[in-house]
Amino acid sequence: MANYAMALEYQNCIDCRACEVACKDENQVMLGADKQRIWVGVVEGGKTLADMFVNFYPSQCNHCVDAPCVTVCPTGASHFVEGGIVKVDYDMCIICKGCMEACPYEARFVDETRHAVDKCTFCDGRTQEFGTTACSATCPTKVRTFGDLDDPNSLLRKTLESREFFVLKEGEDTLPKLFYLVPQDEKFRKRTMGEGIKIHKWSDMAPKYEAATAKRRTEWKEA
């Protein structure tokens, strides 16, 4: 059984937002600027013309191995499915918003057309048919590498084994599965990562992820 994850070469992002459009179209996401399953965060900085910059941070649900949103859900609407994907069963959601409070990445929102909380599903369904997500398939600069974390031959694993990466809010211990690749350009790296972010290699992180995934795998339901 696959264990889906994503590596992000965020240095490549040009903020075209084709990923956001593809996601809305593929998953019939509600219209509205704030109603997104994925997004590109924009940070501008610099004080003079010489040092002005703009950073782009593509992001979405991290499909954490130990997802706190699943733990707090009182009806079981938030659950894991095959592939370690965190999903919401719209017919079970009472919109108590506990999951929105528990998510460290603000990845969830209320979809008024579905009367439920909605979030990224790693294009579950499309993934099985076409092998990747809509956002990944549509990206013109190949920011996203989607794949099976447990398959040593997958492009995702090869990328993670050959590159350093970091994850968001590591201190929350949720084991997120969006891996941000450390930019190879030193200047860009300093500009976008700030101080204090822990940089990892897959060989260091793998045991932790594998152990936690093995423990949680029993909770994965049929997609």
Binding site: G76, I95, A116
Partner: peptide
């Protein structure tokens, strides 16, 4: 009143989630 879709509340009985603080309210 805060719950956006209270019609689905019966799932708290049909599908117990004892690890959830909110479910423990039941």
């Amino acid at each position: 009143s805060d719950w956006g879709n209270p019609l689905n509340i019966y799932w708290m009985i049909l599908n117990p989630q004892p690890h959830s603080g909110m479910w423990m309210m039941l």
